[in-house]
């Protein structure tokens, strides 16, 4: 078993909230620093991977990078020597020679965060600065690749897949790693309860007071106000801002019935499975 606890999700599903909460709770820092996420980097960050690759990833082909990634996470895990969190947006996949993207040697467990796709759509559209219909189409793209293959982005390219594919790929993965499924809606309704469960899953001990304090410090309204003062570092290039509404069931006001039907026809099967229908 390794040291990495993956915080994995499709985009706009609450991953950042979970990261901000954990950073606030587990890593003491100067409270003046807005959006403290440094201790939980994204697994596809080029500079992070460069450090473990012993060469520049930008000198490797896409094929080589994909083959190398599992080894880099194993190296990161062994050098860490203690539990570390990494954010992951990849769909579950294998390397060109068939190795799992994240191995048991690298992994302590995974928190998979899932959110109602009806609520993701408007947030995702806003994030990409696209229309709702474009976001719906993007969420149904089977081969969707995030970031770019033919230029140098701070994030390396990775397989995102459609929303249904993403969820299914992780919930039914054959990697034999412990997966804890966290619903955004549950977290939203009972944050203390569900954050505590995440900490239990990670074998981390915190008092309820500490948890409550960290929840208050990463309250959505507060993050929104903070973003009015300081740009959020992971905001999409085209989006006006990162923190939008963070609500549950907001789709009733934001989507047309036609749009709702389209999402249900694309993802109904998985939505039923998760109790969203």
């Amino acid at each position: 078993m390794g040291n990495i606890i993956w915080l994995c999700s499709y985009p706009k599903s609450g991953n950042t909230w979970l990261r901000l909460f954990l950073c606030e709770l587990l890593y003491p820092h100067n409270s003046n620093q807005p959006f403290y996420l440094d201790p939980i980097p994204t697994a596809t960050t080029r500079s992070l991977l460069d450090h473990y690759a012993d060469v520049e990833l930008s000198d490797l082909t896409d094929h080589e990078v994909r083959e190398l990634r599992p080894l880099l996470y194993e190296e990161l895990s062994s050098k860490a020597g203690e539990t570390v969190f990494l954010k992951l947006h990849d769909a579950c996949s294998r390397t060109p020679t068939g190795k799992p993207l994240i191995s048991q040697n690298a992994t302590k467990g995974m928190v998979y965060i899932v959110r109602n796709p009806l609520d993701i759509v408007a947030s995702y559209a806003f994030h990409l600065n696209k229309t709702i219909d474009e976001a719906i189409a993007k969420m149904n793209e089977q081969e969707s690749i995030a970031s770019a293959k033919d230029k140098l982005n701070p994030q390396i390219p990775y397989l995102l897949g459609s929303w249904s594919y993403h969820v299914q790929s992780w919930l039914e993965n054959d990697y034999a790693i412990p997966v804890f499924v966290l619903k955004y809606e549950d977290l939203f309704a009972e944050p203390v309860n569900w954050f505590s469960k995440v900490l239990n899953f990670a074998h981390l001990q915190c008092t309820e007071d500490e948890i409550i304090r960290a929840i208050e410090a990463t309250d959505f309204q507060k993050l929104k106000e903070e973003e009015d003062q300081n740009p959020f570092p992971e905001k999409h290039i085209n989006a006006p801002r990162f923190f939008r509404k963070g609500q549950v069931q907001n789709w009733r006001e934001e989507l047309s019935s036609q749009q709702v039907n389209r999402i249900i026809s694309d993802h109904g099967k998985m939505m039923k499975k998760l109790g969203y229908l």
């Binding site: 930008s58 000198d59 896409d62 033919d150 230029k151």
Partner: peptide, 25 residues
């Protein structure tokens, strides 16, 4: 330079040498 940078600097692909097969650099 990556291909997109070559383009934005108005450098033709012929003025550069592909560094590795399979890499647009």
């Amino acid at each position: 330079l990556w291909e997109d940078t070559m383009n934005s600097l108005h450098i033709g692909k012929k003025e550069g040498v592909l560094l590795r097969p399979g890499l647009k650099k």
